[in-house]
Amino acid sequence: MTRRHWLDWILQGVTGLYALVLAFPLLKFLQSGEGEAEEKVTQIKIEKNVIPDPGTSKIFKFGSKPGIIIRRPDGSVHALSATCMHLGCTVDYDKSEDKITCACHGGRYDASTGANISGPPPAPLPLLKLEEKDDGFYISKA
């Protein structure tokens, strides 16, 4: 290798390092986002009158993501994540079928266990931990 090659190589290396030094703060800047505080939410409370009758449901905000609370026809109450496991749409409770359904691509889940029954969802909906107290439902991550 000639001296000229070495010099070229060093010059390219220095230029490359300079570019990295410029790129690092830039990428960190673009990466910075909001919403970290919301991710830290651990428990929320929902009033009982939100789902007064069998066959009713309510979508609520759990941190930055939606959750769903359902009172099934048999009276049992369940809370699950409401983000479809397929492509992230928000699911809903279908009273006539007593199933959780996703309008986007027709995914269906069991309303108690969150198990994926049919359609494209690859995994069950995560269950949320539900505690029923006198003053309301306390929901936290399972």
């Binding site: 703060p25 960190k28 800047f29 910075s32």
Partner: peptide, 9 residues
């Protein structure tokens, strides 16, 4: 104050 390198840019 919060964004990484925001003050610099």
């Amino acid at each position: 104050t919060k964004v990484d390198f925001g003050w610099l840019i």
